[in-house]
Write a protein that binds this DNA or RNA. Sequence first.
DNA 1: AGGGATTTGTTTATTGGTTGAATTATTTGG
DNA 2: CCAAATAATTCAACCAATAAACAAATCCCT
Lengths: 378, 378
Amino acid sequence: MTASSVPVRQSSVRAHNLALVLQTVANSADPISRAAVAAASGLTRATVSALVDDLIAGSLLTEVEPAPRTGAGRPAAGLRLAPDGPAGVGLEINVDYRAACVADLTGRVRHRLVEPGDQRPDDAATALAGISRLALQARRLAEADGLTVAGVALAVPGLVAGDGMVRVAPNLGWHDVTVGDLADGLPVTVDNEANLAALSELAAGGLPPSFVYISGEIGIGAGIVLDGALFRGARGWSGEIGHLAVDPDGPPCRCGARGCLEQYAGQEAMLRAAGVATVAELTGADLTTAGRALGTAIAAVVNLLDIGTVVLGGIYAPLLPLLRPAIGAEVDRRVLTAEWSPVELRAARLGPDAAMRGAAGAVIRSVLEDPAGWLGRA
Amino acid sequence: MTASSVPVRQSSVRAHNLALVLQTVANSADPISRAAVAAASGLTRATVSALVDDLIAGSLLTEVEPAPRTGAGRPAAGLRLAPDGPAGVGLEINVDYRAACVADLTGRVRHRLVEPGDQRPDDAATALAGISRLALQARRLAEADGLTVAGVALAVPGLVAGDGMVRVAPNLGWHDVTVGDLADGLPVTVDNEANLAALSELAAGGLPPSFVYISGEIGIGAGIVLDGALFRGARGWSGEIGHLAVDPDGPPCRCGARGCLEQYAGQEAMLRAAGVATVAELTGADLTTAGRALGTAIAAVVNLLDIGTVVLGGIYAPLLPLLRPAIGAEVDRRVLTAEWSPVELRAARLGPDAAMRGAAGAVIRSVLEDPAGWLGRA
DNA sequence: AGGGATTTGTTTATTGGTTGAATTATTTGG
DNA sequence: CCAAATAATTCAACCAATAAACAAATCCCT
């Protein structure tokens, strides 16, 4: 029974409709008139006008020159997301680099800072101090542009609990790390890199509302998007696809089990099996085993969740043409419903920045989803 | 971005709060006063009174004698779900029987009709005519009790599309069957039996808001409950756990692939492997293979969805003591997060009627979730 | 040029719904 | 028998969306 157990008052109505108007504008490719927002959202023109006034006053929307005439009638004033309103800082810490970026409300990346360097020898505190320096630098750059930073989000390659604690990030050597203040009091959220990369792909557009993003790096993770929202699971640990069993008697995995997907389709496993040193040297023949294993795991996801689209990211994105035959064959064979609706495999559109951009996007998204909260902040 | 893209008006506020009040009463074990509802829901006493008036007028709630005195002050009038309000008819059609039941708003089963008999030789039209007879009979029984039947739900062992069409029910021999009117114009919904059984277990209480129900019958299906709501997937075909790959080179399955879970833990596979004729004859030693296979599949579900509780139903419920060692060992080995939060395995509390009761419950649930829609019906 | 048609955006009175305070109702305890 | 306590109702105030009228700005046709 889910009446979400919270009472609704009139102010909630306004909060909801503010978000509705804001997102209608956000989802429109071109500037859009108040009247068009009303038509698209189902609200009255009068209501939309009132809500838009608030959103403009809070610098979430701006009016731009009307679009070229299109017939009779008073010309419309165009609305679009304000490029000088709240912004998000996205951070990523990974095995061999740390990075930060600033994205404005429209999703455009305004600044990008990358510091290569192995993060593994450092202990967590040192690594966090480094990422904090980057975060503060990004914040200063944003404020120099006249932006107000609404928050900071950090992408880590590991399991993140609901309260932001990093339970374990094997490739960083982290265990039970609490991420404190990173940017001088700004709210910080922490999330798994695959989750954030999935959100990033969602924001890039062209995807259905439900899909799975599979990130192939040293480890293999997945971000599950259901109906336009990230599915995190009860404790935030969903998407551990790397340890799905592909063959119960397969090679032992560092997780303690045998035959995990990672032992077939992880970066190191693929390079070792092919006897080459870099991903670029891999050929189609080298990838049959990895492709079949991936196909088996993808089939499991599709059979369980009935999701029709799989986005392959990380090292899989450039390899997809080589992987596709093996993956496709296995998926078609194993997905019960493939007959009625084939599973679509796509390469990720965003490159290695996906997780970091997704982190910045998560901050922005929180403003777009609750503009009333943003407007009403102290 | 999910502002659900629908505008909210004041009437939506009332609809939501009606549901909130109704569900607050429904979730209370004992009769509950208006004041207590106000305290629990966060609404004002004045608002609760007004909403309760509507709910009583629509015979969704009734006032009962106050609970025994508990101190000074005017005694409270108790509220509880009306046992003579709307009711749901639940239907089930399965390989060797068909059945119907009537449940009132409180969830109590008021009537129960079962007709054993192999449904397989019949074509779908004949089977549907039979179930329709049962449905009408159940409706008459309900109306003789003074109940108003709000709708009918049918549980089938197969894939059901969003519009209620049964794509395929292998063990019934159905393909693309459209279920029409079954009970003289009452609204009919159709759903997968594992989904409805999962809802039934949820309603029976004692479970966390997210769990997976695994139904072991001739086939193996799963109902996935996330945050108290059934997860159906994009097209309604989620939970096809029976065809998860347990061993890529295992025995061929009727689905065309190899090594599906059903080939290890399906009823027929288990009996064949043990060389016995009935489930009751199975011993722990017979079930090691099935248990390991189930454990592997459950680990996949938990790794993907981060769900901490698995309910085993159908033939697995009585077998759980024998299956548990093998399942548990495999799950602990394969679930990445087992260290922090062990996976709990439970036997289903409801017997073979679970799906049918879940169907009746789904009808009732639709009223409890949208009382405004029920009150405002023509 | 000029007048009607057309579309955008704002103003105003109305309606629906929650809130908070005051009021009424009903009990226990001294 | 009266005060204290708790439950439920009544009523004025307020908030937000709506519908309809109105104002603004343009196009198009004669």
